[in-house]
Design a protein around this nucleic acid. Structure first.
Lengths: 326, 326
DNA sequence: AGAACCGCTGAAAACGTTTTCAGTAGGCCC
DNA sequence: GGGCCTACTGAAAACGTTTTCAGCGGTTCT
């Protein structure tokens, strides 16, 4: 059998309480502490975290629930969250929902059963609206937000970001600017709203479409759209995966960028720079988003009753060749 | 306080043992099972997984330790592992080592403390060699392997894959073919060995360099190399991140691909197709790698004493413009 | 009819820690 | 010298489950 704290105690000639204190931060004389440490080394003792968590009623674990870790945006945010968490001595349970409300519910239930300290969550629109604040743990929303005042959140200033893209395209002389947005997140909706508002401000008619926020769906949608007669001369796309889909569609239809189609989107992924011409995008502060989320979570844990906070970060427009006047 | 199994038992008018059995797979009469289920719904009971794990001495949790989740190869493999794991009712703890032996050791210790059921691990060369088979859980190595017979593993046929790239380049008429490989993994080493063997077979002189397996390091190394007078006319690069670094370096030095430099690498990431010309790569069966790793782990758990297995998967050469005769 | 068994149930004993509670020993103050 | 701290220690309780063990009523076998 595995070696337990009793074995260490016996080996060190002390009680289990003393071993526990020596390993934790209890008051123990230096002499005994050293004996215990020696006994730990000798026995190869590893504390049982399940037992520890059960007794101490604190799991030091957070849940991180995102749509799909294969989306580089979430990957980058996750990495930032994990680094901050592990640095603070917290474990992370990572879950992929695939934008599916049922899986979201399942994972939220799992988080309750794990008695997690807190959860960082990028919910679909449906779940963000419906999520009861009931759980025993605080929830911080990332990338997407729900009804005002319900949960702490850290999001991009999507309205402004979309507007910046529209403004840029208009400045480059484009008029028939289309928008292709995701259908599942509040973020996509905000980006669409920002696009529509900016278009209206310029006296232009917005033409928006929505599809599932992945490359394949976006490619299909864009290909269909770009084959129409009154097709847009510029396209704004609401995330990195969809942007890739749009590029593929343009290739498929042999539409040179920006010659026949100007293209702009979100997420400054490395490949967007490597393409010729480079893709104009809004860069999201991914590391900052993750770090801020952890920070909000810590604050909430420290002070459960403080007012709900919403951190809004600005995207950075990265202007490249794909939006030059063709 | 939180509602426990005793509360459910009281609400249902049964003992805690019966509740436990009703929720698990014990023998319980239909009538009582329904009473219990009603009580669970009424009380909003959520079993405490820490307590359950402590008592049942089975965590239903696996560890997944990779170098960096931001590497799309690991992202894809992780996703496959997680899907298989969650489908089997197992949780996954994900850890990033950044190719650092110290963090590897730390996470392995963590896995012991979590009493995980098993671990899937992509170790650095140093750790793969030194890892004692001591842990109480089986370990399956992915992408990288250690000393023969020590651990189950699933890897690519790196020798053959590298050889395929060399053969292709030679067939295209290239002779001065350089190789840029990662410095930390057995995989990079194998790819280098395959490259050198194939070069020798063709009567060509291999010229290999090594650097940290990330984009920035590869860009620096490639840029320095490609600025030399006797620079290679073709380059084989050992993973997707480094391939991106190489592309950047070529751009920086204004070396057209494949005009002044042919380029081939590993990992068929979406962007490698989007570049003009597309990049020739070896596609790795990422989903299969993850699924096979879980499968090996399950088999090992079911039958701890079976002989060590090594699953070797073949890469698929994807020939694109970057290796056309310039 | 009694024995043996089956299907179900509850009381109580684990699981491996941390934490409470009650000491003990020594030092300090009066 | 007694009282009262301070600093440390051990016995035992607690955490919330699952699992063992024994018991029960009823059925089937001999």
């Amino acid at each position: 059998m595995s070696v337990g704290i009793r074995d260490v105690a016996r080996a060190a000639g002390v009680s289990t309480a003393t071993v526990s204190r020596a390993l934790g931060r209890g008051p123990v004389s230096d002499a005994l502490r050293e004996q215990v440490e020696a006994a730990v080394r000798a026995t190869g003792y590893r504390p049982n975290l399940s037992a520890r968590r059960l007794r101490s009623q604190t799991t030091r674990t957070i849940g991180l629930i995102v749509a799909d870790i294969r989306n580089p945006f979430f990957t980058a945010v996750s990495r930032a969250v994990e680094d901050a968490a592990y640095q603070a001595g917290l474990r992370v349970i990572l879950c992929n929902t695939d934008e599916d409300a049922e899986r979201e519910a399942m994972y939220l239930r799992l988080m309750e059963e794990e008695r997690v300290t807190g959860v960082i969550f990028a919910p679909t629109r449906a779940t963000a609206q419906a999520m009861k604040t009931g759980g025993d743990f605080p929830v911080v929303l990332i990338d997407r937000s729900g009804p005002p005042g319900a949960h702490d959140s850290v999001v991009l200033d999507n309205i402004a970001a979309s507007a910046a893209l529209v403004d840029h395209l208009v400045a480059q002389g484009y008029g028939r600017i289309g928008g292709l947005f995701g259908s599942t997140s509040s973020t996509a909706q905000e980006r669409r709203a920002g696009y529509e508002a900016a278009m209206a401000r310029h006296g232009l008619a917005p033409v928006a479409q929505a599809c599932l926020p992945n490359a394949a769906a976006a490619e299909e949608a864009a290909a269909r759209w770009l084959a129409e007669v009154g097709r847009p001369e510029a396209l704004i796309v609401s995330n990195g995966l969809m942007l890739m889909g749009a590029v593929r569609a343009a290739r498929r239809l042999a539409l040179p960028i920006p010659g026949a189609l100007a293209l702009a989107g979100f997420d400054n992924e490395p490949w967007t720079e490597l393409l010729d011409p480079g893709l104009t995008v809004i860069e999201q502060p991914v590391a900052e988003i993750g770090a801020q989320a952890m920070s909000l979570l810590f604050d909430r844990l420290k002070n459960p009753d403080q007012p709900v906070r919403k951190v809004v970060l600005s995207g950075r427009p990265v202007l490249r060749g794909s939006t030059r006047r063709g």
